[in-house]
């Protein structure tokens, strides 16, 4: 007799546990307000990335097309996998001295691991992360970017 009661108890408890689970799922079924899906391409305009989001490395330029990069190469040394390559040139400053300056700051987005060491170690805060995250291109060569804009110059007062 006890075994029969045990058998029935097992069935009732089992079904009860199943019903509790079904209650959770059906509650969600009838509450469309809890849907968490974001409709991505449609919400592009309202989509704001967080300010620290590591999208890609950029070199901010001011309105006079000036940047802060001195071409010291510390970011290149700190980069773990050779994402950054710096081609420097020698320029003659106004007072006639020869000085090393940046020619091309090559940044290979395809290799970047977003470890933030370049941004962190840059002595003149020339690099920053942008919030852009749509990086897909059809040609891989487009992922190799030159960060300093053509014709840009070193900002005054940055050594």
């Amino acid at each position: 007799m006890r075994s029969i009661i045990e058998y029935l108890r097992e069935i009732v408890l089992g079904i009860w546990s199943l019903l509790k689970g079904m209650k959770v799922t059906s509650t969600y079924f009838f509450s469309p307000g809890k849907i968490v899906t974001q409709k991505y391409p449609e919400n592009r305009k309202s989509l704001v990335m967080l300010e620290r989001f590591k999208g890609e490395v950029v070199m901010p330029h001011n309105e006079k097309n000036e940047h802060k990069c001195t071409g010291c190469g510390i970011c290149e040394i700190n980069c773990p996998n050779g994402t950054i390559e710096i081609i420097s040139k020698v320029i003659i400053t106004e007072d006639g001295k020869k000085k090393k300056a940046i020619d091309k700051h090559i940044y290979r987005l395809g290799m970047c691991t977003f470890c933030a060491l370049c941004v962190k170690t840059c002595p003149s805060n020339a690099l920053a992360f942008s919030q852009k995250f749509e990086h897909a291109v059809f040609n891989r060569a487009l992922l190799n970017k030159i960060l300093n804009k053509p014709g840009s110059q070193l900002m005054k007062g940055v050594e």
Binding site: T25, S26, Y28, F29, P32, K34, I35, V36, T37, K39
Partner: peptide
């Protein structure tokens, strides 16, 4: 149905 159960669209 499964999407609504799973909080999806």
């Amino acid at each position: 149905v499964c999407a609504f159960i799973q909080n999806r669209l």
